[in-house]
Design a protein around this nucleic acid. Structure first.
Lengths: 109, 109
DNA sequence: ATTACATTTGACAAATTATGTCAAGTAAAA
DNA sequence: TTTTACTTGACATAATTTGTCAAATGTAAT
């Protein structure tokens, strides 16, 4: 029964909501990330993609689960990359096979 | 029963095998792709990643299924991107959800 | 309405990565 | 030993990413 998809927030929406709920200003968070607040503003509105390091620092200062946020971040990047392909789901399936194959071969080295 | 994974060739291996079976030279194929044969040599040995356009031209000249080769190409890129993450399979699952969500919202515009 | 403050915007700069050329090197066959 | 195919690595150029800055906008309090 029914969808597993409860919400589908972007990373930007997640961090903006959390930042505001903590009462932090753009410039405060941006300074912690060591970037200009203009970039953070754009990240929150999906005009710029954060770097991996941005994500890690954001999780820290916003008290979000780092692993979760990274998963959101990476999956968002991948989704954006292939969403317009009609073979998108096939690509993901094959990617999964390839990863399994790669990991199974790690044991052999 | 057992593994669905029969072979797990890279794009490089696929095109090298096919090129050789057709008796084509690096320089012939490279010229068709409008690149230096050094690049093609590297692509075949996984030292360089092909461009999307390279893949399309390769499918043409090597009489490979374009869609299949593109799927291999894109999934390889994704696999390479996240293979070293321990949350790799979660990333793929979430990516799939996001893509479904994006596509369901296309109808609403 | 003026001031003060947070955010947004766009032009631009710097750094990084992707893509390519070239020429010399290796290897094997003729 | 000359020719042929391929490989290698140093380097060049182009494209993309990532960032800065200052001006513009929005918003709330004085």
């Amino acid at each position: 029964m029914s969808s597993k998809i409860i919400h589908m927030e972007t990373v930007g929406q997640i961090i903006r909501a959390k930042r505001e709920s903590l009462g932090l200003l753009l410039r405060q968070v941006a300074s912690y990330l060591d970037i200009d607040q203009a970039i953070l503003s754009k990240i929150e509105r999906n005009e710029r993609t954060p770097t991996r390091n941005n994500i890690i620092k954001l999780a820290e200062i916003l008290k979000l689960d780092k692993e979760d946020l990274l998963v959101q971040f990476m999956s968002e990047k991948i989704a954006y990359e292939i969403a317009n392909e009609d073979c998108a789901s096939k690509v993901l399936k094959v990617a999964e096979q390839k990863i399994k194959y790669l990991k199974s071969n790690l044991t052999k080295n």
